[in-house]
Design a protein around this nucleic acid. Structure first.
Lengths: 200, 200
DNA sequence: ATACAATATTGAGTCCAGTCAGTTTAATTC
DNA sequence: GAATTAAACTGACTGGACTCAATATTGTAT
């Protein structure tokens, strides 16, 4: 049995191509008009597939947004992780992780909030939802790793602290009261909370 | 001009009576079947009003849930506040505030999560949403007051800490991963996070 | 009382996410 | 390469939240 699985047949290729078309169509429409102002029908039309077909690739409109955005968040996390390695101060290092994610989330505020909503309240058995949660998990791990670097005695366990960082980020980004804040103000708002959390 | 506004006429009385019927109908159906499994039509029928009338009293189904639940949360907060006064240890005192709210939220998990979702993502200009946010605000004030009681130097400001407590509660209660936890497990989960936050 | 204005009610209708029975297309077998 | 099976696709349809033009009710002025 060869290590490489046999090359995909027409069926697989068609499926992949369709998924690509859907992703592209959804990404473009969401970016242009905002999730709330795009109908699934428009996406199906633009991807040139039937109404029902769309839902074979993403079970809900929310899943569709996760599908489109997950890679952006994953990239943001990676950028932050890389940058954090160059920073000594723990608070600044943690903020290096936080900032790109907040930036990503704020590219379009309504879409960002919809994404967060879907992450917390969507169906956790769906694949893209799952992927989103995995990114959150990786984010928490990255934060925990920083906190672990030079841990003074008496400090609580990093995993729990990272969990709280995650909660702070979520609520700060999602809160309707913060919807008017610009990127910098929001980042500072979050920084203030985290500094209090990891103060020594 | 008399201090007491004139007694309400038939119009006002009818409106109040209708609101009462709506509240009662929604409360009963939500408790019995869960928000998701009740249609606005059923509520209108049970309250003996037209379909459209329902939405003059609560602009969305979510608002309807807030209308029904807000008083329960307000009462939970009041109970917690009273109990917290008798507790010296700050962590335990904060948990006295937290526990009744979590209990209230967990009376019916799906309804509880729907309530949280509506609170963060609902329309903040709607009255019942506003009332819900006000309860959150009061909760944070109550927590801040406890933290302020015997504040060691170098501790961050209570308002911000209370905000974080609020975020911890929200995410812990809303997270789909915690949906399986029973009341005690969830409370302990939250306690662990808060203890880390307000450690001295 | 009567006319008029203001407010409240109503249910048929709209919009849209999501479904499903029927059809098409690809893979496999002989 | 025909027949058979399995998988993918499709769009007419459904269910349900919410709207709005038409109607009814209450309050007020004469």
């Amino acid at each position: 049995m060869p290590v490489t699985s046999k090359p995909p047949g027409r069926r697989e290729r068609n499926k992949q191509e369709k998924l690509d078309r859907i992703t592209a169509a959804a990404a473009e429409l969401f970016a242009k008009y905002g999730v709330e102002d795009v109908t699934t029908q428009q996406i199906a039309d633009k991807a040139d597939i039937g109404t029902g077909t769309l839902f074979l690739y993403a079970k809900t409109k929310g899943e569709l947004l996760l599908l489109v955005q997950n890679t952006n968040y994953a990239e943001a996390l990676e950028r932050g992780r890389a940058h954090a390695e160059t920073i000594k101060d723990p608070l600044d290092a943690v903020m290096s992780i936080v900032r790109p994610i907040v930036e990503c989330n704020r590219t379009q505020i309504d879409n960002g909030r919809y994404y967060l909503r879907e992450m917390v309240f969507g169906d956790p058995t769906e694949p893209h939802h799952n992927a989103a949660l995995s990114i959150v998990g990786q984010t928490e791990e990255a934060v925990a790793a920083i906190l672990d670097r030079e841990r003074p005695p008496g400090t609580g366990d990093p995993a729990t602290t990272a969990r709280i960082v995650s909660a702070i980020m979520f609520v700060s980004m999602a809160a309707s009261g913060n919807a008017g804040l610009d990127l910098e103000a929001l980042v500072q708002n979050i920084r203030k909370q985290i500094s209090l959390l990891i103060r020594r």
